[in-house]
């Protein structure tokens, strides 16, 4: 059975319907503060301090397995910050403090026993701006597997790289120049390369922070198609400014406003029959 067949098989399995309601990640009562410095101040204490930015306010979100969840909302509403809560990327920012609980398959990811580095291998991330490393295309994709020792030998690594590039729908364009620098690709190709790089470590959840904002409509369409494919293997969480995009690719949508989660529901319901007036104003273009 060739690899392509294997991938096709994967996809048909989904289409036959895997339970979409299986819970993958759960966030409860999450607050995020910037400029908080060190220490162990309580959420109430920090919220009362005017010098501290209260970026996320008591947010609860459930991320289901094999589902695309989109976060929408005006700029500065905290959706990217919240996304970075899910793989502890905020740990790398000075003065950023988070309170509340986030679990991945029932395990608290902010538990001191959890290694954030291991966590990020399970919760992959694709960024707004394509950021290929200044290495060859092959080395870009092989980066994660090499770090985590996922390949037994060279042939195995090559297979992982090919599979990831295929999954990111860029294999045909780059298969003849895997040694060329990843920085030499076009913007859309770079972004798909970054997606390939993220899926190469076989994460369980893939976080995408406005993955299409730097792309033209054609590349956007390709990436959206890709997101739909990725749902067969991963849960995908996507932050987007485009409501059409959210409507096209996601099954669940969360609307953030001023650091609060205003509404979180099935995408269809959010876009056709929102229960909160602020959501309605935003999707009809009156705020944001």
């Amino acid at each position: 059975m060739s690899m392509e067949d294997a991938i096709m098989n994967d996809m048909t399995q989904i289409d036959q319907g895997v339970a979409v309601d299986e819970l993958k990640m759960q966030a409860r009562n999450v607050d995020v503060f910037y400029g908080a410095g060190g220490g162990t101040r309580s959420a109430e204490d920090m919220a009362a301090d005017k010098a501290i930015t209260h970026a996320i306010k008591h947010v609860d979100v459930d991320i289901a397995d094999k589902t695309v969840t989109s976060f929408i909302g005006p700029s500065g509403c905290g959706k990217s910050t919240f996304l970075r809560v899910l793989n502890r990327m905020n740990d790398t920012i000075d003065g950023c403090r988070m309170t509340g609980d986030v679990t991945l398959e029932g395990e608290n990811i902010y538990d001191p026993k959890v290694d954030p580095v291991q966590l990020r291998a399970k919760v992959g991330m694709v960024f707004q701006k394509p950021n290929p490393f200044p290495k060859s295309i092959f080395d870009n994709v092989a980066y994660g597997p090499r770090i985590h020792g996922l390949a037994r030998n060279k042939a195995d690594l090559a297979e992982i790289v090919e599979k990831s590039l295929r999954r990111a729908a860029i294999w045909d364009e780059v298969k003849d120049r895997l040694d060329a620098p990843g920085t030499g690709l076009s913007g859309g190709q770079q972004q798909r390369l970054c997606i390939a790089r993220a899926v190469a470590t076989s994460p369980e959840v893939l976080l995408m922070d406005e993955p299409c904002s730097a792309l033209d409509p054609i590349a956007t369409a390709q990436v959206e198609e890709l997101i739909d494919d990725l749902r067969s293997r991963f849960s995908v969480v996507i932050v987007t400014h485009s409501m059409q995009q959210a409507a096209r690719v996601s099954q669940k949508t969360a609307f953030f406003h001023l650091g609060e989660l205003v509404e979180f529901d099935d995408t269809d319901k959010i876009f056709t029959n929102p229960s909160d007036p602020r959501t309605e104003s935003y999707i009809t273009g009156r705020i944001g």
Binding site: N87, M89, T92, V117, Q118, L119, R120, A121, K122, G124, M125, V126, F127, K129, N131, P132, F133, P134, Y143, G144, I147, H148, C194, R197, A198, T201
Partner: peptide
């Protein structure tokens, strides 16, 4: 660029 570092951390690199 910080984005390169973020990309690497995002893949679980130390």
């Amino acid at each position: 660029p910080q984005s390169l570092r973020d990309g690497s951390y995002g893949l679980g690199a130390t």
